[in-house]
Simulated scan of single mutants.
Amino acid sequence: MTGTTKYPNLFAPLDLGFTTIKNRAIMGSMHTGLEEAENGFERMAAYFSERAAGGVGMIITGGIAPNVEGGAGTKLATSEEADQHRMVTQAVHSAGKDVKMCMQILHAGPLAFAEIIVAPSPVKSRLSPLIPAALDDAGIEKQLADFANCAAKAQGPTVFDFNCVGVDAACCHQARGPLVTPPMNVIAQSKLCSTNL
Rank of each mutant, 00 (worst) to 15 (best):
Q84C: 00
E115M: 13
L106M: 15
C102Q: 08
M101L: 15
I105V: 15
A91T: 02
G70S: 09
G71A: 09
P110D: 06
Q90W: 00
V88D: 05
K97G: 11
V68P: 10
L76W: 03
N67D: 15
G109N: 08
F113R: 11
Q84K: 05
M101R: 08
L111G: 04
S94Q: 14
A91Y: 03
G71W: 12
M87G: 01
T74W: 13
L76V: 01
G109R: 08
V88G: 07
E69R: 07
V92G: 07
N67W: 02
M101W: 14
C102Y: 04
T89E: 04
M103N: 03
H85C: 02
H93F: 05
Q84A: 02
Q90K: 10
H85A: 04
T74P: 15
N67H: 13
M103G: 04
M101V: 15
A72R: 09
H85G: 01
C102R: 06
H107C: 08
T89P: 00
G71Y: 11
V68K: 14
L106S: 12
F113Q: 14
D98M: 06
D83R: 06
A114I: 06
A72W: 07
A114N: 09
K97E: 13
E115R: 14
E81T: 01
L106V: 10
S79K: 00
T74H: 13
V68H: 13
L111R: 13
Q104C: 12
Q104L: 13
A95K: 04
E115T: 14
V92W: 08
K100G: 01
A108R: 13
A72T: 06
G71H: 10
L76G: 01
A112W: 11
F113C: 03
Q84W: 00
A91F: 04
A72L: 10
L76S: 02
Q84Y: 00
T78Y: 02
C102S: 14
D98L: 06
C102N: 08
T74C: 15
A82R: 03
L76M: 07
S79I: 00
T89Y: 07
T74E: 14
S94D: 15
K100Y: 07
Q84F: 00
E69T: 09
A108T: 13
L111K: 07
N67E: 14
L106C: 12
G96N: 06
D98S: 11
H107T: 10
G71Q: 11
I105Q: 11
K75R: 15
E69C: 06
H85E: 02
D83C: 02
G71P: 10
M87R: 14
V99Q: 06
I116E: 14
T78C: 05
T89G: 05
